[in-house]
Design a protein around this nucleic acid. Structure first.
Lengths: 336, 336
DNA sequence: CTGAAAGCGCTTACAG
DNA sequence: CTGAAAGCGCTTACAG
């Protein structure tokens, strides 16, 4: 069925020129007379010719493929990020090869090797870690890696995050200022730098006001585990009157448990603050106060960093922590 | 910086065998003595050699790339689908090249050509249409196309959906059985087959009970537009007492408006039914009755169809509409 | 500007 | 089982 693939040689024959001439017409920047261009374009259109990108990549050493490894797609922050990243890269003439992994997957390396096998020009890891062994492989092969929403102790890796420490601090300051006194925290996965930084900033903020954590549970960035954490945390005599949850995704679970199962009112009985400011935080059913991650700027910087390092192998890795505002909604303001 | 790329020739020299021998060791099914295999593997490991997939593809004519075009990533149904599809294809040794498009994008063809340029072995279009012109190009080039969650009048295209007509009918039967009388509908984008089929089934169901639509608005599968539609629909003297919304994503918006802005109780004042049964439908804040799309089976069939057609070019296109149950929750049951 | 030729890194008949 | 050779579809010096 499949009619023979149309190659540059077929077009060359049809146009009465050499195969190289055809190639030049389709190579931006190569020189060809307008007469040749005309003949070639006509023949190409008639035959339905388009250059084989794989063959081109083999020679140029550039695939224009960016490998993306991503987890946590049930957290709306990541689909939004993927969409922005993919569109941004499309505009720059790159395309995204995706690999999905389990949240706390350890064997990410296998997938990354697959990406390298496809000769990706660069790699983005969203909330995913990489062995230092593989990191040096990438660096040796000249394939830049950018960590998105995660940092890692490795000099060769760039990372783009929000300022999670500052964000955590803002959450603490806000709750204190609103007069809450028994302030608790529900943590994300302890292996994540975002979790560590947000908690550190939060505790700093409390400490600055002479406070400490009233209670603490772990939700592992997982919806159901966050519900368990909330049940645990609030099934005591003296309950917290405010809780900072390490991301919005878990905060929704917590709010559902508090209101639905425990009959608590938000914010009168308990205040809730999240992190990310995903779209649903603004939905009428949640109105969740949240530290916004500046997703647009984070994606811009991810792309900029990647392209810089692709163009110039000696460009040093960059570590950026972009500031985001606390978006105050009624989940944490009694008068609102 | 980038150390020279390690090729099969380098490994051959190091192992003291021919380049073809190296290739055979890395080609499943090719024959080599255990002694050769041993020598080659050792040398390959030392040098860090992995076959260049692009070069392989050039010869075999198989890239093991599947192109995916997807929109509506803010509707949780699609990230979930992507995750399932990507993981399923990974297990089969395929990888996904993604292109994101605007919801009602018309110029999808450009993106699809890019996918063809990468010599994709197959294409999945999720809620996205394709010109019949390009469809025949794909068919001519032997690249199978599967439409996911959308059908289109084109003999060459396979499609996998849920049974949207039956689903719409179930929604109608349920609302009638629950005793609702002024039953309304909020539509999705009119260009979508899912929208047309769900509405057709819903109206059929009403008609079977001697009813007709009490009111109708359009939400275009868009969150904010769905809110507008709800405001419009309920700002009248005689309000509907039940509304079927063409998907869950819009139904959440509608519920927020009904409760938050209009002070209506669900389901006492108004019942709401959605479609998809995304995770958030089960969340405590919504408890939304919804027609479940059998996403796992849909993905399985998408992959099976794709692989069948990749392996056998003469395999005919398949059109599947899989049945999904109505999941009843308290948004539509007064006693619950 | 243009064509002949080499070569990107592989796979795969073809002999042996 | 194994090596030499051709070839996948391109790009890119190199001459002219």
């Amino acid at each position: 069925m499949a009619s023979e693939k149309v190659t540059s040689s077929h077009v060359a024959k049809a146009a009465g020129v050499s195969q190289s001439a055809v190639s030049r017409v389709f190579t931006p920047g190569a020189s060809a007379s307008s007469k040749t261009i005309e003949k070639v374009r006509r023949a190409a259109n008639e035959l339905g010719y388009r250059p084989n990108v794989l063959a081109r990549s083999l020679i140029t050493g550039k695939s224009r493929i960016i490998g993306l490894v991503v987890a946590y797609l049930n957290n709306q922050f990541y689909p939004d990020f993927m969409e922005k990243l993919s569109k941004g890269l499309q505009e720059e003439g790159y395309h995204v090869l995706v690999m999905m992994v389990e949240q706390t997957a350890v064997n990410t390396d296998d997938l990354l090797e697959k990406i390298l096998d496809y000769q990706a020009d660069g790699i983005v890891l969203a909330s995913v870690a990489m062995s230092s062994q593989l990191a040096s492989r990438c660096s040796a092969e000249g394939v830049p890696v950018v960590l998105f929403n995660r940092t890692q102790d490795n000099d060769t890796l760039s990372s783009i995050t929000s300022d999670n420490v500052a964000g955590g601090r803002k959450a603490a300051e806000h709750l204190i200022q609103q007069g809450y006194r028994r302030i608790a925290y529900i943590a994300g996965w302890s292996g994540a730098s975002t979790q560590r930084d947000r908690e550190a900033g939060f505790c700093e903020g409390l400490a600055a006001a002479g406070r400490t954590l009233f209670a603490r549970e772990e939700g592992n960035f997982h919806f159901e585990e966050a519900k368990l954490a909330a049940r645990q945390m609030f099934s005591v005599d003296e309950r917290p009157d405010a809780v900072f949850v390490c991301n919005d995704h878990m905060a929704f679970a917590v709010m559902d448990v508090l209101r639905d199962e425990l009959g608590l009112r938000i914010p009168q009985d308990v205040a809730v603050v999240g992190y990310d400011d995903v779209p649903a935080a603004a939905w009428g059913s949640y109105k969740l106060t949240s530290v916004r991650q500046p997703a647009n700027r984070m994606v811009e910087q991810t792309i900029a960093t990647l392209l810089t390092q692709i163009e110039n192998e000696d460009a040093p890795p960059r570590r950026l922590a972009l500031d985001g505002p606390l978006v105050v909604r009624s989940s944490s303001v009694k008068s609102k």
